[in-house]
Each structure stands twice: as C-alpha cells, then as structure tokens.
Amino acid sequence: MSSDSGAGSGVIHDIGFRHYEGPRLGRGYLIRSLYADSLRGCYGLGRSTKSKIMPFLLLLVMTAPAVIMAVVAGVLGLDELPLDYVSYIFALSSAITIFLAAQAPATVSRDLRFRTMPLYLSRPLTRNDYVLAKYGAMSTALFILIAVPQTALFIGALLAKMEFWPNAKGWAAGLLGAFLLSLVLSGIGLLIASITPRRGFGVAAVITVLLLLTLVSGVLSALSYENDQAALSAYFALLNPVSLVQGVLVWTVNAESTYPEPPPGTLGGLVFTAVMLLVIAGSYALLAARYRKVSAS
C-alpha cells in the first residue's frame, strides 16, 4: 500500500507510541554521527545509486594505475617502483582535485540547497560542531582516496619482492602526504562550496579556483625561473595548494619536486610548512565564520 494522502496509509495502527527512556548521548556522539554520515555521503553510500558513480569511478582511476604499475614492476622484476609513493600522489592530482570538486558540494551545499540546516540547528548540535564534522568527513574521504592507491602500491611492491624498509618508509611518506593534502584541499574546497547552494556552480567554482591557482603559480614560477630568480620561482609554488603540500613533503621527506625549484633550504621548508598550516587553519576559521551566518530558517 503506497497511496499518499489517500485512504489507507492514513490509518494509524494501534501499536501505541513507546516513550524513550534510554540514554541520549552527548555532543561527541552527535559529531561522530554527522561525521560518519557525511563521510558515507562523500562516497555515495546511503544515498541514491547515481551519487555512487563519480566517487567510485575516481577511486578506480586513482587505484588502477597503482595496481598496474605494481604488477608490471613485479613481472619485469624491478628493484623499485617506477614512480615513488609521493610522486604518485602528484601525478594523479587532477583526479584528486576532481573528487574534491565533485564531493565538496555534495557534503555542504546539499544541506543549504535543501534547507536541512534548521533541522540540524534545532538539535543539540552547535554550528561549530557541524563544521568540525563536515571538515573531518571531507578530509577523511580524500585521505581514503589517496591512501588506498598508496597501500596498493606498497602491497604490490612487497609482492614483487622489493626491499621492505625503503618501501615502508616511502609508504609512510605517502600517507603523510595524503594526510596533509586532504586537510589543505578540504578546507579550500568546502569553503568555496559552502558559498553557494547550487551544486553545479559549486563544482565549477572549486575546479576553476584550483586550476587557476595551478596555472598562475606555474606561469609565475616558470617566468621567474627563466629570469634567474630561482628562489622566487620556488616560492611561487606557495600559491598552488597542491604544490604547497608538495613543497612541505620535499623538505620533510625528500620527495621529488615537479616544480623547477624546490623550496630553498630550511627557511624555505619552514615557510612552506607555516603557510600550509595557515591555509588549513584559515580555511577552517572562514568556514566556521560562514556557518555562523547561515540562517536557521
């Protein structure tokens, strides 16, 4: 029986309403629940089938090359992976960016678009809790996206009988990179997406901003390099969130840089790290500010 306001489904069965005398858990539980629900939403779980296509497709795109590489390396009997763990992240940064662009709006614009915010805000959850949960979920979703192929590479390397310790260290470096990149990108992506309730526009805005930063940073860096301004060229990598994290990794775990110049020396490394932390904290703070202004109606 599935009539809506017609007769039949309006009949209330006389089971009686049971009052709830059980525990009502506190804010920690609420944040965890929202976090879990949002994380699942990033991968389309618990939503319609259509919303699963994009995230899983991207997960496949991220992982397949890793698997293929590992298999090839094994078959050819290579000593080390053709592309190391951290470099893999940056080779596939487009896919990571697309995932962010597609799923950040799904995480935050959705509640704005469908005006679900009043339902959240009329519950014990505070606005800051909401932001924390969403930020955590998006970061975790990105982390999973990057960590899975990293782990596939690691397992593949081990199966191909490569040396354990170098690969373990590389894998750890890769996970560190995954962690930092997730935090940086989530902050920026969620901030941009939360500005508009329209999902399509949110997607386009995130991609446009990230691409713009990539291009500008690349052009400026190349320009200064050609004009013998090596240090300046290195510092222009700060403009692009992806190369920002790459810079930090170059300094901390000796990753390879895809920019003409790596961050110069210790000062460079510190500057990059400081800017990265600033970006994370800043975008979180702006996101919280944005949600303080969100109407409760």
Partner: peptide, 14 residues
C-alpha cells in the same frame, strides 16, 4: 528511513 535514522542519531539516540 535513512534520513529519519540520521536525524534520530543527531538527537542523541544510539
């Protein structure tokens, strides 16, 4: 179902 379940949890129900 999904939605009401989520909202129930957001009100503190295990």
């Amino acid at each position: 179902t999904e939605f009401v379940l989520h909202m129930a949890r957001m009100s503190g129900l295990p």
